[in-house]
Amino acid sequence: MSFLPYALAAWLFFVGLYGIVTSRHLVHLVVCLGVMQSSTYVLLLAIGYRTGKKAPIFTSGVPTKVGAVDPVVQALTLTDVVVSVVASALILALVIEIWKRSGKLCRCSAPPCSAQPAISCPHGSTTSSRLRSRQP
């Protein structure tokens, strides 16, 4: 079962990537990016884990002889989290700009999401209108 943390990291990465590729909505895309980024946390922490060891915090209650997991990857994960949060904020600010300029956030041909930036996008109506236009 020792491969499971790595498998989880891979799963999060590819699920997030799939979401980005198939995304039809810019906010949905940022959320998918967040899922993808969280795979790096899992991977980093999984690499630094040592079976049976404690957290690298040596307060008086923790016996030092037990040893601790790797502190470097934990510090890296901390950096990773902070960077991903501010990166998401920056992308969302760009999304707001796009919405202000073009009035839409999703790749719909019909004008369904012009008034409010709704998360859900009425895919059904656009596909049906496309199907209808194909008919002679």
Binding site: S2, F3, A10, A46, Y49, R50, P56
Partner: peptide, 23 residues
């Protein structure tokens, strides 16, 4: 990805000297 993972240490058996020295 899988190829890269095979080069990683087994889960729970990491032997990084840097972290050990810092600890």
């Amino acid at each position: 990805f899988v190829w890269a993972l095979t080069g990683l240490p087994q889960f729970g058996a990491f032997q990084g000297e840097y972290g050990r020295i810092l600890n």
